[in-house]
């Protein structure tokens, strides 16, 4: 996982969110308002600087892909063929012909729903267990070795066991999501709780907060940056796991859609599905990161 990258980004975020100190009004001056056109030009320029480089790179890659796969005898379709083959799927994601013959929207929403269930349970259980392990030395001694072993088990290895236990695809997939994403949430929460400065605990002791108030008013806000690091890793892992799990359990879902396309040799459809999986994974990550940014406002700075 790209944990260091996420951390680096988190610190960068913290730096940029620090509001500038209000300057003391030494001399009153009417601030010069730049003309509106100039302002728009500036915004447009900033946007271009961000958007143009990735677009150029994508265009070049597409061109390369097109050139490589256009030759006769190529095993994979070029982008032009992918687009031609999947045009219907792209233009009408909402069709529903019953069974698993549905538009991509339905497949993706089914997958997202499973992730939403599994991940929500993981977030609640993860934060609760993380708090316990972070707060109590005995809980840590007892549980931490267990966590360290269990977290290394690959998500799919859990699937047969959960199928055996639940005897149904849906709860099994949700369980796989849960068991995949819960570990980083537990571990990061525990680290966050353990790193709460003694000063904050002293403040709570002097004010005589009861355990519940201490949990909600001190622990959760103080550990929030760590918790959100865990939540962000967790959402990435659960999206990774759902596609693999759905390939095995079947039914409606983007994972089985990919597997089904492979069985029918619709390679273009696989490529389209991968594109959607990537975009949605990216959006999920951004959503959790954005949420973290709002919730941990001011927490990291002292």
């Amino acid at each position: 996982m790209s944990m260091p990258a996420i951390k680096a980004e988190a610190t960068a975020v913290a730096v940029t969110t620090t509001p500038p100190a209000a300057a003391a009004p030494v001399v009153t001056m009417t601030p010069k308002q730049p003309p509106r056109a100039e302002k728009y030009a500036k915004v447009a320029k900033e946007t271009a600087v961000r958007v143009v480089p990735p677009l150029v790179v994508v265009a070049l890659l597409m061109l390369f892909w097109e050139l490589v796969c256009r030759r006769t005898g190529s095993t994979l379709p070029p982008p032009s063929k992918v687009f031609k083959d999947t045009k219907e799927l792209i233009l009408d994601p909402f069709f529903d012909n019953g069974g698993i013959d549905k538009g991509l929207f339905w497949h993706l929403s089914a997958s997202l729903q499973r992730v939403a269930y599994g991940y929500s349970i993981a977030a609640i259980v993860g934060i609760a267990l993380g708090t316990l392990v972070g707060q109590s030395v005995w809980a840590m001694r007892g549980l931490d070795p267990l966590f360290q072993v269990l977290r290394t088990i690959p998500p799919l290895a859990w699937l047969p066991l959960s199928l055996a236990a639940f005897r149904d695809g849906q709860p099994s997939a949700i369980f796989v999501i849960f068991i995949t994403s819960v570990w980083p949430i537990i571990i990061n929460t525990a680290v966050g709780i353990r790193n709460i400065p003694q000063d904050y605990r002293n403040v709570a002791a002097v004010v005589q907060l009861n355990p519940l108030e201490f949990f909600s008013k001190i622990m959760i806000p103080a550990a929030a940056p760590y918790i959100f690091t865990g939540l962000r890793i967790g959402i990435g892992l659960s999206w990774l796991a759902i596609v693999a799990a759905e390939m095995l359990i079947g039914g409606v879902g983007i994972g089985f859609f990919i597997w089904d396309a492979w069985n029918s040799s619709h390679i273009s459809e696989i490529i389209l599905a991968l594109f959607y999986v990537g975009i949605i994974g990216f959006v999920l990550d951004r959503v959790i990161a954005g949420l973290g940014k709002i919730v941990t406002r001011g927490t990291s700075a002292s």
């Binding site: 000063d199 904050y200 403040v203 002791a205 002097v206 005589q208 001190i218 103080a222 001011g298």
Partner: peptide, 19 residues
């Protein structure tokens, strides 16, 4: 023998809650 608001402390490093 336990902390309480009747003996409020001003800590050296202020210890304000940043959030």
């Amino acid at each position: 023998n336990s902390p309480g608001p009747d003996r409020a402390v001003v800590f050296q490093n202020h210890s304000l809650l940043p959030w």
